[in-house]
Nucleic acid binder design. Sequence first.
DNA 1: GTTTAGGTACGACCAAATTCGTACCTGTGC
DNA 2: GCACAGGTACGAATTTGGTCGTACCTAAAC
Lengths: 106, 106
Amino acid sequence: MPDSEGHPSAGEMTLSAVLAALADPLRRRVVRELASAPDGTARTCASFALPVSKATVTHHFRTLREAGLIRQVDRGNSRMAALRRTDIETCFPGLLALVTAETPAP
Amino acid sequence: MPDSEGHPSAGEMTLSAVLAALADPLRRRVVRELASAPDGTARTCASFALPVSKATVTHHFRTLREAGLIRQVDRGNSRMAALRRTDIETCFPGLLALVTAETPAP
DNA sequence: GTTTAGGTACGACCAAATTCGTACCTGTGC
DNA sequence: GCACAGGTACGAATTTGGTCGTACCTAAAC
């Protein structure tokens, strides 16, 4: 069962949820940017400047969080999102490399 | 541009289409069974005994074909489906291993 | 206290995906 | 010829997913 903030444990991640989350280009872009940054990097949702409304940004980050790809922690008035790199690599080795290798263009 | 039967070339495969195709458990089951079989194995759609109607089976195989994951060739009165193993490994190395490693249970 | 910025919650909308039934086509086998 | 099995095409119903506007909350800054 996910914790009070909606984070599944590493063992609760499912390939279905992870692949569905990564099927969206915007969410893949978030994961790619986090994966390309130094490990442990935490950024606010707004810092990604996604070309959608605030409500839609929240939706995408919830999808990523509930799939187990990111961890969101309260930090004052904002919430920092960090990639769950080791959890992902443990459950689905090689997956992050596929996302990182994608040409971000379109 | 895909060929007359809807197969994209290796260079035309997109991560979006491939991940969306693999997000469905039934389609992942097809890919997993093909990936676990000897290379070059070709099977009919019906041989997978998916728990859905014939029309739905056709839909799922079209999704897999248009994503570039399988190749379907006419063989008399049926169509044999084969995994495009080398194309997939070239474009998205490690992806098949993730699907194969999944526990098929749920 | 007031304002402001970052996020969330809710309801709504529209497009796409999933499913099915039915009709149809094409070879194989009798 | 005829029946049959494997697939496809089409249309329809339902669900899901991405998007938005608005209202609201919290903490920092003033």
